[in-house]
Amino acid sequence: MSDVLIVRDLTKHFGKIKAVQNLSFELKRGTVFGMLGPNGSGKTTTLAMLLGVVRKTSGHFDWFGKGEHYALRKKIGAILEQPIFYPNLSALQNLRITAKIKEIQAVPYEQLLDTVGLLGRHNDAFKTYSLGMKQRLAIASAMLCDPEVLIFDEPTNGLDPQGIADIRSIISQIADQGKTIILASHLLDEVQKVCTDFMVLQSGTKIYQASVQEILHKNEKIELAAANMSSLKDLIEGRNDLILTQQQAQWFVVEPKEKNLSLEELNRYFFERGITLVHLRKVFSSLEQEFLEILSTNN
């Protein structure tokens, strides 16, 4: 049983608005799964259905191979949108409430608060916290039950650069422990940095799904430069496995027709024909470029 979650034809209509339509996907154990999509593409609605706070219109889902029962959520740590806590209660008092709901007996509160850097402020009321501290408390609360799955929805939204870096490093640490994570975000860079797999939602429909590695290596490009650029260009055009895609001031960008073309072989090829390369580099496309491409092909 390697699927933590199976979703089949999940659909939600708010009146005439079709927020999510026939969404199906699986979540494999140990993956960090990114849900990408512009604002309003149905990410939060999907998660809210999976977490029982929004009623699905149709379709079904299956947590841990056991169905949709509410008690299964006790093994899931989740934050949707903003961190939500009792504003007048302290961090510790709030965590106690979560622990009571999730039926956890012995909680190492101090250790947990220390991990997210809230030890020292844990007796202050939640409403006095900065946004970054609220996010970190939310992460502590999500990790409370030693969950099998963690769900983060826009966890770095509204944070300053230091806050963003902190949250990402905490998420990466959790991922390194082998936990399964769903990360909903409209920040491509974020997904690229921490996710292993991702899907793209647009207007409530899944338009793409792949592993991050796969898509990053999909468009491999090579940058080349030599002292004599015109003879280099002739040689490039002489090879039918290379396509010259861009001529920049300092170098040419070529796209190999076959993947895993070795740079060593390429270097030797030009050298043997009297051209000494001064610049040779393999570049991978960023998720952002791919994402925009995916969105534009679907419009």
Binding site: L51, G52, V53, Y70, A71, L72, R73, K74, I76, A78, L80, I84, F85, Y86, P87, T98, I101, K102, E103, S141
Partner: peptide
Amino acid sequence: SNRTVRQNIIDGLS
């Protein structure tokens, strides 16, 4: 108004 009921449900309360 604090939406804590939402978080309660997410955390595993019915």
